[in-house]
Design a protein around this nucleic acid. Structure first.
Lengths: 106, 106
DNA sequence: GCAATATATGACTATACAATCATATATTGC
DNA sequence: GCAATATATGATTGTATAGTCATATATTGC
């Protein structure tokens, strides 16, 4: 397999996970090393490393080595756009649902 | 749990699957009933129904009943923008990787 | 060369997910 | 009311995923 659709699904899947979203959000501030990332997002070093690796493999993050430290950064600016658009959807959905509840109550 | 980050991850996850991407792509043509969708994407009726249900639950699709038929449509136009942005990333990544291979060969 | 620091990885577990098959539940026209 | 059509769902299975713990592998400064 591994058609174009599968590649696209894999790229989106690389974003669609809470720990990875926390990492991406932290990287809005620019390139950061693992030793800065995992304490900031409050996850274990090993778990953070796996998620960073996964995102790098799927082309979401760039990786740069400097001495003993590994620096990760968002590779394509579209990543932020995607997340902002998805956030807009979620926000609108929550509004829609709470207004539905209000209509039932009134 | 179910924080804002979890909601966001769930929304993205609702897009990040090949069968669901095929459905979304088919719905670029507008509202369609299940009986049109599942033959077009070449998936089983029951499987298609589950994915449609999942996307509707997560606010990706709208659902409208007309007689015995159920019509689904993309609820938020941002869905298409997200997928187009993700496609652009995948395309650029593939280009980057094939140019790396060329550099090794030459 | 050794200790300290940074990162990655093997082994494992628990949970989530996708797909399939069979079947249930509308809705409609006759 | 019955047959036909459209959609949804219960039960099951195989596979993927996230997280944890322990440990391995750089790299650096001394």
């Amino acid at each position: 397999m591994s058609s174009a659709t599968q590649y696209l699904a894999d790229a989106l899947k690389a974003l669609a996970q809470p720990t990875r979203l926390k990492i991406i959000d932290f990287l809005r501030g620019g390139e950061r090393c693992v030793c800065e990332i995992f304490p900031s997002i409050d996850e274990e070093q090993s778990n953070t490393s796996r998620h960073l690796n996964q995102m790098q493999t799927h082309g979401i993050l760039s990786r740069r080595k400097d001495g003993v430290k590994i620096y990760y950064a968002i590779k394509h600016p579209e990543v932020f756009e995607i997340i902002d658009l998805a956030s807009a959807i979620v926000k609108r959905e929550i509004e829609l649902r709470s207004s539905l509840i209000n209509n039932v109550e009134n």
